[in-house]
Each structure stands twice: as C-alpha cells, then as structure tokens.
Design a binder for these strands. Sequence first.
RNA 1: CGGUGAUUAGCGCAGCUUGGUAGCGCACUUGGUUUGGGUCCAAGGGGUCGCAAGUUCGAAUCUUGCAUCACCGACCA
Length: 565
Amino acid sequence: MRTSQYLLSTLKETPASAEVISHQLMLRAGLVRNLASGLYTWLPTGLRVLKKVENIVREEMQRAGANEVLMPMVQPADLWEESGRWDDYGPELLRLNDRHKRPFVLGPTHEEVITKLVANELSSYKQLPLSLFQVQTKFRDEIRPRFGVMRGREFLMKDAYSFHLEDECLEKTYQIMFDAYCRIFERLELDFRPVIADTGSIGGEKSHEFHVLADSGEDDIAFSDGSDFAANIEKAEALAPTGERAQPTQEIETVELKLERLIKTTDTDVKNSVKTILVLGTSAEGEVEKFVALVLRGDHELNEVKAENLPQVAAPLTLASDEQVSEVANCHRTSLGPKGLNIEIIVDRSAAQLSDFACGANVNNQSFTGVNWDRDLAEITVQDIRNVVAGDPSPCGQGNIEIKRGIEVGHIFQLGSKYAEAMNCAVLNEGGKNQTLTMGCYGIGVSRIVAAAIEQNHDKYGIKWPKAIAPFQVAIVPMNMAKSARVKETAEALYESLNQAGIEVLFDDRKERPGVMFADHELMGTPLLLIVGERNLDAQQVELKNRITGEKSLIAIDEVMALFN
RNA sequence: CGGUGAUUAGCGCAGCUUGGUAGCGCACUUGGUUUGGGUCCAAGGGGUCGCAAGUUCGAAUCUUGCAUCACCGACCA
C-alpha cells in the first residue's frame, strides 16, 4: 500500500473527549472515528488490526473444533420471550419494530438464536458434541459507553456455543476452550490472566473471565502472591478470620455521637466498628417483601454480587430508601446498627469476629460501644459478603491477596441446560428417549482486544503493536525521494519485492519531510521501518529501525527480503 | 437516572463577565523554500457560534427550554 492511496488520517492533537490512552491513540493514529456515543467507524488502519485479531481468534476456534456460522444481528422478540430474557434483560436490550409493528431486538448476544438453530438441526446424540461460533457485531445499549471501543455500544465479538448430552462432555469442551483462549492471548502477546468469575444472571455453574492487566481496566482482580489463584473480586472469597473471637470485656455504653463522628473524634478504631446496610429482602416464596440488614466491619466494602446471591436478599441488590430506613429503624441510615433491629441480620465473617465493637444505636446521632455478638445479639447469620482487600489470606490457602485492574476480554461459561430447556433443544439419546442438551458459551471481545493491546503496548510516540496484529509489518520511508532518483528507484524496488512476497508493506511516498513521516509511523506503531536515503546508498544499504526496541541498524539492500523469511 | 461540566472552522481552543455582526494555533489550498526527526515565508478558502423561543434597535455574549457529548456516581452477561 502506498500512503498516497491510503487514508492515513493521523492527528497531531488529542481530541478532548478521549480519556484513556488507547482511545487517544486510536483516534490519533487514525484507527477509529466516533459516530455517536459508543458507536465507532473503523478506518483502514484500525480495520487491519481488527481483522488480524479476528483471524487469530478464528484460527484457534477452528483448531478447537468449532464450526463458523453467521447469525443475524436483528432477532425476533418471540425468541427472547421464549427464553424469558425479554423481561429479564432490561434496557440494555435495544428493542425495535419492523414495518408490520412486529417486535425485534438488536442482538446483544446469541444464545436464543443458536439454541433454536441447534434444536431444529440436531436430532440424535450421535451428532454431539457440537461447537459453533461466529464473529458478529453485537449491540448493547450500555448506560455509560466510555473509553472508546473499550466499552462501546456496538462492538465486534466472537461468540461460541457448545452442545452436549452430558455435563462431563461439556467440561471437556470447556477445558478445550479454556486452552484455546490461552493460546489466543499468547499469540496476541498480551499479559493476561484467566480468573474465576461470577456467572451473573446468565446462570450456570462454572465460569472464567480472561483479563488483560491494565490500570485502566474496569474490573478488580484478586491474585494470590503465593499461587496462581486469580478471581474477579466479585467472586473472590474472603476467608473467615482464624482463631477464637475474643471474650467480651466491656459493657455496652451509649455515646451521643453518630458512628462516623465517634470514629473520627475518639480513639475508636474503624476496624473495631461495624456498619449496617439495609437492603430489600425476599420472602420464603422468593418475593420481595421485607428488609435485611447487612453488617460489615467499618473498613470493609460490601460485595454486591455475594450479597445478591444470598437467598434472603432480593436481586438486584436494592438499598433501602431513607423513608424505608426510618420505618424499620426509626433513624437515619448513618445511625443504623444491628442491635435492636427486628429483621434478619447477615453479618460478614470478619465483622462476626469482633468483640467489644462500636456500632450505630438506631437512634439519630447515637452509637453503642462495647457491643458483643452472642451476649448482646443472638440471632445473626454469618456469611461472606465483603470484598477481599490486599493482604487478606488467599482463599486457595496459599499466599496473600493482591489486587490489580483488568480489562475483561474473554468470558467462558458452563451454561447448563437453561436455554436448551427454554428453547426445547433436545435429541434422542442412546435409549431412544428425548434428552435436553447441556451447553457452554464462550465469548471474546474482538474490538475490545484492540484497545486492550494498546493499553499494554505504547510509549510517548504512539502504539507499539505486538507483531501478530500490527496493521503493516514494515514501512518504507524514503528520504527526499523527490530529489533523488536513486532513493526513488531503491524504494520502489523494495516496495515491489516486498509486495510480491506478500509482505504487508506501507510505502510512504508522500512528499513530506522525514520528521513528519517518522512521527506518523511511530504513532501507528509499524514494527519495522526501512529508511532509504542517499547517505547509505553508495554502500548499497538501507537503515532498519525497530519500533519496539528502538534499535537502528544498517543492512544490505539485498538482505532485506531475508528479514521476512 | 442523579450530580458536574462542555457545545464557537476538520482538530485543539480564545471571545461571553461589561451585547455592536467572530478570532488564534494546527490541519487544508496556491506559490516559493527546506529535505535523516513534526522547515520557513507569503497569499488564500472554510463558521446557520448545538437547536428553539424570549429580552433588545442589535445576541456567540443575557434569559428559558430542549438536544448532544464527556466526567463522577448509581446501574449493568
């Protein structure tokens, strides 16, 4: 490709709307352009990268035995009613009507469509197991699109689905997919971790997320420093403190301060206080009807996923309003405490270990000190409901927890039969009986990977692409080609040979000054530059510059092709 | 959905307080100059000042409403 025929579209200045480095560089290097909130056009350079990521994913999916298909982005609403997600999915699901006023959705994912397809196509256990995948545009009407293509509303995703008669078979495929994912991210040269993940509302038993480590990531990942344990913080278990709880030594006293003031103005340690959060609870029939108090040590944070997964707590987790707090406890939320509440009390394991602790007194601007479980509060349930913090013992039993930020680029689930049941996806088994299938699903955010790769690979000059996904393998940068016939001939000849050999080469034939060309190629992250100048032509040499290492060297012109063998 | 801020040329911004018909840098066009790290000089083109209503002789500027974008929060496979 010649730059004179190419849409380079680099920018000197950073557009004001770009927050994270990958978004800034994607705009500056001319990879994408914003169309509307969360919607991006891929320019030629960006599309080259996107396609390379897509192809690596495709190759590894095929190697894992999956068949590629392509499903419509627009899906009829009745499929979603059949699975129950028409009601469950919420406003993230973009709904629309066709000219006959028939309801459709823009697919945020394709479980319904694929399950329906397989239900229609398969009839015998002999056709199992089967894995299908596609690379397709997804649309999710995100509440808050941000960071460019990192969290766009429309994005490119590889989604794969596997179908099995038995769970053991599903587990085997799950492991194959797990390995395929590791290979994909290794080929992309990303610093990534598979982490244990929450299955969320999609259901299922087992799930891993694949995270690219980067400070701009939106998720917290808990690692062990003593093993390879890693889990999304949503899912990382906070172990119960070891040892016996200390015996009470103090009597309850009432203090005329709200808890926050008590901690700030006296020597009461926040770690020896508990905070109390009132949330909606569920009845025995699973209906939302009452309240539950969640009690945590003062310095700990509530883990909403853990709380939500408790049967006593209504999902989605809903905090009680100020009015509701008044009804239940007759005080403001800042003075809530577990003692004297006439509702179910769920206490975090760490909070349950405290003795002689401080808490709100359920009277405005009053607290208790010297409170003790058992003695002062008998009826409590102890659960793990907090986020792990750095330094906690790892739930794997070895080492301590460290927390880092990650960008979720992949997620694999053992779905089970939720969708197969809903969509009536079954085959005849060996005994001639109808048997509902069990499913796995496996997603990779293809467009998000492009952003994640930049987050991990850039410097002050621009992007430093991993080899496998660079838009071009090499650029030819001629010095003053307009004035030097030799330079022009050499550059053209090199371009011709590289092109012939199928190397992706960008020939900078613009009439620009060298500095401009260097700056553009560094911004775009081309891994190798071939600099052709009068200076080295007498010796039949060109200069080779490596974008990643910054190394420069001179090589003979007839050695150039050997670089790409 | 709540809070905050923004919206003036393709991009980055100034002008608004104190109303008088729009400017700077980059980019773009033309000519010259320069050519191993974003040359320099000159001349140009380009804007319904987000939209609508109001106040006023007169609105980018004041008032009101709306829209869009972003950030923080809530929310979210």
